[in-house]
């Protein structure tokens, strides 16, 4: 087990190094100089700026310096903001994005599982039809259409919730719902299919034949097995929620890391782009690692299979 963990950690470090290097190269291929704006700065001033941020040095040296900073967990200053460095920006933004993501995940899981199970138990009925409708609409309408629609209905017309302005719990409801729609739909469909399949199995028929109440059969016998496929897609779903918040944070004016990153890309704020790539990738890798470890604990067979592949 220890060897396995050590190997995985080593692989993660190599992967991270690769991602940093790749992003570094891509970023410097972007046409446009971060300090070049419409304003006419004299050459001396531009030179000062470049010297201050070290962009006048050879790319190789910038790269080594960046890796050095990374070892000290220092992601450097922002080219644009003179008050917030990259570390500060992530420290400010991530708790917000994490809260939003977590709320959306919980909502998607709770509602998705519930709807999926309920639909399966009444297959062919009204609830089932409704669930399938939600399940298909949820994955077929872009979130940038859902968001303004929800705002219009619940904030502008009904006046129940605030439009934007992150802060109170009420202000988090609309973005959470928007972000949860797609994974919710996906989970509901998956749960429904998987519960239906399990319900067809012999041991369930046996349980029914033994006269156990249907709800008990569903919850105690069918659900645990039906959940396995849902658990296996938790990783990709979480990653999707994490990245899906780019657009939603932008629309709702949420002070998270997604909005920060989109702005940084358009403004050529290299250190912020690099820093976020490093941060998001680390998060993703750590999360996948944790999921794998959890599998290993739950079911040793999976670990063997995975380490083989």
């Amino acid at each position: 087990m220890t060897r396995y963990i050590l190997r995985r950690v080593a692989a993660m470090v190599v992967t991270l190094w690769f991602i940093v290097s790749a992003t570094f190269v891509i970023m410097h291929a972007i046409p446009g100089d971060p300090f070049v704006t419409e304003a006419r700065l004299p050459e001396t001033v531009l030179a000062n700026l470049r010297a201050y941020y070290g962009t006048d040095r050879p790319l190789g040296e910038q790269y080594v310096r960046y890796l050095g900073g990374l070892l000290r967990l220092d992601l450097g200053p922002s080219f644009k903001s003179d008050t917030l460095g990259v570390n500060e920006q992530i420290a400010l933004g991530f708790p917000v994005s994490a809260q939003l993501g977590l709320q959306a995940l919980v909502l998607a899981l709770a509602l998705g599982l519930g709807l999926g199970m309920f639909a399966a138990s009444r297959a062919g009925g009204l609830v089932d039809g409704f669930t399938m409708l939600v399940g298909t609409l949820g994955i077929s309408v872009p979130s940038f259409v859902v968001a303004p629609l929800l705002i219009d209905l619940f904030a502008v017309r009904a006046g129940w919730l605030p439009v934007a302005a992150w802060g109170s719990f009420a202000s988090t409801i609309l973005p959470t719902v928007t972000l949860a729609v797609a994974p919710l739909a996906y989970i509901a469909r998956l749960t429904r299919a998987s519960v239906l399949e399990t319900l067809g199995q012999d041991y369930i028929r046996t349980a029914h034949a033994k006269g156990q109440p249907p709800l008990r059969v569903l919850v105690h016998h069918a659900l645990p097995n039906a959940l396995i496929p849902v658990v296996t897609i938790l990783g990709p779903i979480t990653a999707g929620i994490l990245v899906g918040s780019f657009v939603i944070e932008f629309i709702f004016g949420i002070p998270g890391t997604g909005r920060m990153l989109v702005r940084a890309i358009f403004e050529r704020d290299y250190p912020v782009i690099l820093g976020s790539a490093v941060f998001y990738s680390t998060l993703l890798l750590a999360f996948n690692f944790a999921v794998d470890l959890a599998y290993g604990v739950i079911d040793p067979r999976i670990r063997v299979e995975r380490s083989m592949s």
Partner: peptide, 14 residues
């Protein structure tokens, strides 16, 4: 600080 101009206008309406 709301960057989307449609959202900003909706905030105004609300």
């Amino acid at each position: 600080m709301i960057n989307d101009s449609n959202t900003a206008y909706q905030s105004f309406l609300a």
